[in-house]
């Protein structure tokens, strides 16, 4: 517990003592705003945040791996990983501390989009359900992407490689359910496999959050997936360490 808290605090502080967090927040807010207004938000004449949440999966696919790529790759490159593991901290504590610190930055980024909520409230009388669940879905989605990014960051000391692999990994989960991909897979994979791929889709689950539906199995899906990738990160840290 102590190891976890100290790593969490150090990580969180390091985001804000370097330009990293500020650059990330500004780019995220600009990009999310751009995506909303580019889709004719005002002409739609609807007091809803549908278009805002619609952009999240695609926006996160690049921004979350950008934040996640440094998690372990940087520690390995600067060899601070050797320092970190000379302290009485277990790999699981370190991985969880790093993950939660990064997720906190993402939560802050989402929280800072409040002017969007204020705008919708000012212009009309929105249905609160989809807004709340939309934020919940975005937060869970960000966590899942982040866990994927964290795993790929463990594998290499090169941040660019970590980034590219993480984007590819996230893209797989996002596109898994889309019709074009499913049609293609249906022609190449056996039927059972196609169903498995469909179950793994982020897109359809995120859409139900967007509509205001919170189903236990959707929440459980994201939580389990996140936990799974995090566990894989812990294993990868141990393995890579043993290999030098």
């Amino acid at each position: 517990m102590r190891g976890f808290i100290s790593v969490f605090k150090r990580e969180l502080r390091s985001y804000f003592s370097t330009p990293l967090a500020y650059v990330f927040l500004v780019v995220f807010l600009l990009a999310s705003g751009f995506m909303v207004f580019q889709k004719n938000f005002f002409e739609m004449r609807q007091a809803s945040m549908w278009v805002f949440f619609d952009g999240m999966p695609l926006l996160f696919i690049f921004l979350v791996p950008a934040l996640a790529m440094r998690l372990w790759a940087e520690e390995r490159r600067t060899n601070t990983i050797e320092l970190l593991f000379s302290l009485p901290i277990t790999p699981a504590q370190a991985a969880l501390g790093k993950f939660l610190a990064c997720w906190t930055v993402l939560a802050l980024a989402l929280a800072l989009t409040w002017p969007m909520v204020a705008t919708v409230c000012y212009l009309g009388d929105p249905d609160w359900g989809p807004i709340v669940t939309g934020y919940l879905g975005s937060f869970l989605l960000a966590g899942a992407y982040l866990a994927i990014g964290s795993f790929f960051s463990c594998l290499t000391r090169n941040q660019v490689i970590a980034f590219v692999l993480a984007v590819a990994g996230c893209a797989f989960f996002l596109s898994a359910g889309s019709p074009s991909v499913m049609n293609y897979l249906a022609g190449t994979l056996p039927a059972g496999m196609v169903e498995v791929v469909e179950v793994l889709s982020f897109k359809s689950r995120f859409e139900s959050f967007q509509r205001g539906v919170v189903e236990l199995r959707d929440v459980a899906f994201f939580v389990l997936l996140t936990a799974g990738w995090l566990w894989a990160s812990v294993v990868a840290i141990g393995e890579r360490r043993a290999a030098g």
């Binding site: 150090r10 390091s14 003592s17 370097t18 060899n79 601070t80 050797e82 320092l83």
Partner: peptide
């Protein structure tokens, strides 16, 4: 450790 690794930004 060799080369005294430490977190540069701290």
């Amino acid at each position: 450790a060799e080369n005294a690794p430490a977190y540069d930004e701290m």
